[in-house]
Nucleic acid binder design. Sequence first.
DNA 1: CTGCTATACTTGCGTGCGCAACCATAGCTT
DNA 2: AAGCTATGGTTGCGCACGCAAGTATAGCAG
Lengths: 169, 169
Amino acid sequence: MATAPSRPSAPADSLSDRELRAWRGMLRAHASLTKALDADLEAEHDLPLSSYEVLLHLAHADGEHMRMSDLADSIILSRSGLTRLVDRMEREGLLARESCPSDARGSFARLTDSGRAKLDAARRTHLSGVRERFLDRLTPDEQDALGDCWDRVLPAGHDAGPACGSLDP
Amino acid sequence: MATAPSRPSAPADSLSDRELRAWRGMLRAHASLTKALDADLEAEHDLPLSSYEVLLHLAHADGEHMRMSDLADSIILSRSGLTRLVDRMEREGLLARESCPSDARGSFARLTDSGRAKLDAARRTHLSGVRERFLDRLTPDEQDALGDCWDRVLPAGHDAGPACGSLDP
DNA sequence: CTGCTATACTTGCGTGCGCAACCATAGCTT
DNA sequence: AAGCTATGGTTGCGCACGCAAGTATAGCAG
């Protein structure tokens, strides 16, 4: 229970300042960023961040359509969660469900014109938000360093779906 | 709509690979880490991560008690959210509400013996989880670099509450 | 063709959360 | 002291989510 404020390396049952800064900083940064970005989109385009992510992935997908499961994986959502999200978005006309010709069990979600328009409108907001609140506050070197960290932290099989390499939020 | 995969710096309406890696990597890392850590605690100690955080902050607070608002800020939860969380934890005997003598509006949440015991038991699980899945995969330099990034990203007033400097998850 | 298991999605249900409205008390103003 | 505003906390409400069970189809074994 003794307070050991400036331990350089790791004791057994507590974290060093360095570890603490790295770890809790991420928690706070993530919370603060996603909240702010969601608020931005909601305020300017009446669009939740989750819907934006769906639009984005669809727009980048081949033929602007994706299987429900792939979409769920891409935006890190359970399948049931995605079903509901797609329900809502379909109701708003941002996308349409389409049955899969080669597999009657499967469905596609396809971007509608209205969905594409919404994405085009919202993209600037989101992008400038990400820049202002995050990227612009880091040097390119720091951005690279972060990228390296995530590669190490993320489970290997945890890929970001097909369009991972060229997906720009 | 042209694909410009390896832009070194920022075009106007998309992110460079570097930016993308830094940004989406954080989203994935956060999702993956919190999910895994929560599952660990839940499996081994039947304790949600949110409750663990409350116990942790209480244990570090002066007198093992904190005002509800401060607690809410510390664990990044709305006040109503905290009210409910404390309700649950009180029901389980992990903490107790206490009225504040100097301000009749306020309440304290105080750690109970049972809560302290729970924390002691769970601490190892959580700590080793954070290390295994996150900290141990980074070099000390990278940890420092991350810490620097978060300082820059986090809004200035966004402090982590009183016990910030010596809080070890 | 008849099962039998695996896969793709959806639905029922419970949970945890935030927002906004709501007390109760504090603390200033006159 | 009476009134006014600010603050700390709780409650009503609705929402988005995950889990587990359900439905439909695929694809293989016999």
